[in-house]
Design a protein around this nucleic acid. Structure first.
Ligand SMILES: [Mn+2]
Ligand SMILES: [Mn+2]
Ligand SMILES: [Zn+2]
Ligand SMILES: [Zn+2]
Lengths: 167, 167
DNA sequence: GCCTTATTTTGAATTAGTCAAAATAAGGGA
DNA sequence: TCCCTTATTTTGACTAATTCAAAATAAGGC
């Protein structure tokens, strides 16, 4: 499978590929952690090399989301799909193209740019996090919204380049 | 303006704000470079503190794009707009909401998540880069697509979690 | 003008990832 | 099956963006 793409078949590559197949949207670190279990001396660099190679030849797709520090990888390629991510726990799920066909959105004004692609990411709160957050609210009576944020810069708030979605 | 938001009015804050107003989508480093010109001892930490504070109180909006390492900031807030970014030089322009109103997209299946927002980023190649690339192509005859990527991991290719856009 | 406390400065740490040279192993040909 | 070339992995160092924490400074209410 890798052979005819000009890549040598190695244990790290096979294990990494298998992991991503069973764990869609895994990031380099998750893959590394998994490989480290079975192989003794794998390093993060190895994993980065692997995902770069596999992405280049088209076996993997690199999924880079806004607000998300690390890149994620998946084997579901070829079909154009979007993603929805929980703003609380970071969990990612696939979302089929909203409009349908692959070319799905076009802006009014491209500012003279040749449009290459449109990236759509939905953000939300998953059921588990919703539940957990409710529990927390019960404990923390009412959040002091206009808190005069003392010394500590408390805001880990995920503000983003996003638009309100219809519900 | 900052005062009644509970923030003290300081020189770094005013300068940073002014810079972002005149340079939409500036990142922390650009702001820092600008401030460093007039103020002598400003540090990057100061800038990060400022953009965090201003983002928290809603004076700035943090724009985080896929494939983009650093966050960008703008004063155009409240209206829901998207962005188009040149994949070659990173230049960012505003794009009005494609669908119109603020709630603009909804996925078929939210996988049980409460939808919070939808982030849409267009990617393209700006006129200048298009021109520059053409010049390069003239020099580099035809790109050997199936290059047996020797030792060097050559791919700085910006693969992304995106969908092909209609042209 | 003083004092409290928010803000900035100083200094260090973290995370995701890249770069390059040396060691190792894949797999095509003998 | 063994060998050799060269791709891949390992080792080790480094960058960029950002955060954390303690000490120094300055805003602005009194
Ligand atoms: Mn996916
Ligand atoms: Mn904008
Ligand atoms: Zn969640
Ligand atoms: Zn450009």
């Amino acid at each position: 499978m890798l052979r005819n793409l000009g890549l040598r078949v190695t244990v790290p590559r096979l294990k990494a590929l298998e992991y991503v197949q069973t764990h869609p949207h895994a990031d380099a670190d998750a893959i590394y952690t998994s490989l480290a279990l079975s192989l003794h001396g794998v390093t993060r660099q190895t994993v980065h090399g692997i995902v770069n190679d596999l992405t280049r030849v088209g076996v993997l797709r690199r999924v880079s989301l806004p607000e998300s520090a690390s890149a994620h990888y998946e084997t579901r390629i070829g079909d154009n799909h979007h993603h929805i991510q929980c703003v609380s726990c970071g969990r990612i799920e696939d979302v089929d193209c909203v409009v349908g066909e692959a070319p799905c959105l076009t802006p009014e004004d491209t500012h003279g740019m040749r449009l290459v692609e449109a990236s759509v990411t939905f953000r939300g709160v998953c059921a588990e996090c919703e539940m957990r957050n409710m529990a927390h609210e019960a404990l923390q009576p009412s959040i002091p919204l206009t808190q005069s944020h003392s010394h500590a810069r408390t805001s880990p708030a995920p503000t983003s380049s996003t638009i309100q979605a219809k519900r």
